[in-house]
Every structure is written in C-alpha cells, then in structure tokens.
Design a protein around this nucleic acid. Structure first.
Lengths: 153, 153
DNA sequence: TATTGTTATACTCTATAACTATA
DNA sequence: TATAGTTATAGAGTATAACAATA
C-alpha cells in the first residue's frame, strides 16, 4: 500500500438543491454497485442479461428492435441471441406474415433465471432494510415512488 | 414492431418489507440507468473511468492495488493505466524507497474530467429535483443518508 | 429496389503465462 | 527466492462491410 487516505466527502450542504443532487447521485451509484454484486453466477454478459430482460418486458421482439433497444449493432445482436438461444433462455419463432423477420421470446428457463436474479438482489436489500429503524423504513417507503418518478421525468 | 406491450408492474404491496425491497430495487436500477446516460463523451471504458475515480479517491495507488480494487488482473491494469497516462489523466512517479513499485496519481486534467462528469449528472438530477414539490424534495433529503447507509451495512 | 437478418473480418478489452528488475 | 510490474499471446465481445433472402 502506498497511501490509502479516502478524501473527505463533499462538503456541499444537503439543504441546497445542488447538495441534494450531489448526495443522491453518490448514494445511488454506491448502492447500485452493491446491488449489482448480488447476482447469480449465470455467466451472462451485461448485454445478454439486458437483452433477456428486454424481451421479457416487451413479450416478443425482433432482432432489429432488440439491437436498437440495447444500442448495439444488428450483427452483435445476432450473436447475443444465438448465445441465449443456445442456453435455452430465448426462443425464435417465424414472423406470422413477413418471412424476413424473426420473433424472439423468453422461454420458461429464461423467465426463471430473471426471477432468481431479482430474488437474490431483493433478498439482499430486504435483509438490510430489516436492520433499519421503523422510521427509516417509512422514509424509504415515501421516497420510493419519488425515485421512480425521477427516472421518468 | 412485433408486439410492444410492457407488462404490468409488480403487484407486491409497498407496505411489506419485501414489497419495499422490490420497489426500491426497480427504482434504483432505473434511475441509475438514466443517470449513466448523462455522461461526457470522454470515450473512457467503464474500467478506465472507475480506475481514474479510485486513484482520485485514494490519492495515490500502486498498479497492484488498483488491479485488486477494480477486480482485474495486473496485466489488464497495466494497459488501463497506459491508456489513461497517454491521455494525460494519470501520472506515474517512482516509489520513494522500493524501486520495483510505481505510484499512480491523478493529474489536473484527470480531476477536471471527473469533476465535469459529476457536474453533468448532478445538473441533470438537479433539474428534475426542481420539478418536484417541496414535500417530495424534503422526503428525498431525509432518504439520502439512509440510502447511503444501506450501501455500507 | 428497399429491408431484415446473417456471415466474414478486424479491433478492443481482459485473461493467463512467461519474462525483467528489484528486494 | 519472492515480489512488482510488464510484455507476449489467446479468447471474448462488438463493430463495419459484404452477402442472402424476402418484401
């Protein structure tokens, strides 16, 4: 170790809006980093996992839509889908009318993997919530819908 | 477009602890995804950016420490450092006593990049906070330290 | 002729193994 | 002989360009 002195946290007051933004940004990033570590050993890349979740969320999508949604190029999505299909997490069915297109959907195994993934993260979080005071939990209960709102504004 | 019907959100009640954990997880993930998009076009990989931030946070670190901190192998860190040094964001100075070691520190340009990166995210967040009601902002002010606490428990 | 998706190929990032310099 | 770091090389993942099938 050379030196290992963490710097003093931001001194901007929480009372100002800029201070609140700063404090929230730091807390959100840190908590998310911790949450991301609570993951299954599914050995899926982030893109693969996000693709699986997107298909589940939208019920059925074409490779082109998925590429756009995940901000990757179509050839990359072809390979992501191939991997997920190989592992039985996604299935491809022909498009009813346009035979150029393919419809991608989640298999039961894919759904189960996503469920388990979420279950692990939520279990970790629930455990920590248990160690808060009732007042702290009440505050978070009020804050949750506001955080939700922030991301859709 | 094939189909694009988003599924109904979780029906678990916010009142239960499991419901709170679920709601928080979703909100946190979504808000972070939005925040991450508010980034400079610095063309740094996630590892490069995280490394830069780690060095800033710890003032000075050795390549070995950085590799361990960022969970990459030493040879990978060698290349990350090389890239960051090439761009003038990190600097290397010899260790005072052990000539095998190298001390890595952030340059002024590196500090400025991190500042700008944070400024952008916080500006985006502050703008959204402005559109909340005073009560909602007060709730978030109370919640911020609790979120912070959750990640260190 | 335009569009959807795939194959061919190259580049980047990270890993393991082997090497150099210093303790 | 052990440790810190780098260089050499290989394996994944993604991009661009070219191609095949269908509209």
């Amino acid at each position: 170790m050379l030196t290992n002195t963490p710097k003093i946290a931001s001194t901007v007051s929480l009372r100002s809006d800029a201070g609140l933004a700063s404090a929230l940004r730091v807390s959100l990033a840190r908590l998310n980093r911790r949450l991301r570590k609570q993951a299954m050993d599914h050995s899926l890349t982030p893109t693969q996992l996000a693709t699986l979740a997107a298909v589940e969320r939208h019920t059925a999508m074409s490779p082109g839509e998925l590429a756009e949604h995940e901000k990757v190029q179509p050839p990359s999505m072809t390979r992501v889908i191939a991997k997920l299909e190989e592992r039985g997490l996604l299935a491809r069915t022909p498009h009813p009318t346009d035979r150029r297109q393919v419809s991608i959907s989640v298999t039961e195994a894919g759904t189960n993997l996503l469920k388990e993934e979420r279950r692990l993260k939520e279990a970790w979080l629930a455990q920590r919530l248990k160690d808060l005071t009732p007042e702290e939990r009440a505050t978070l209960r009020s804050a949750a819908p506001i955080l939700e709102k922030l991301s859709t504004m």
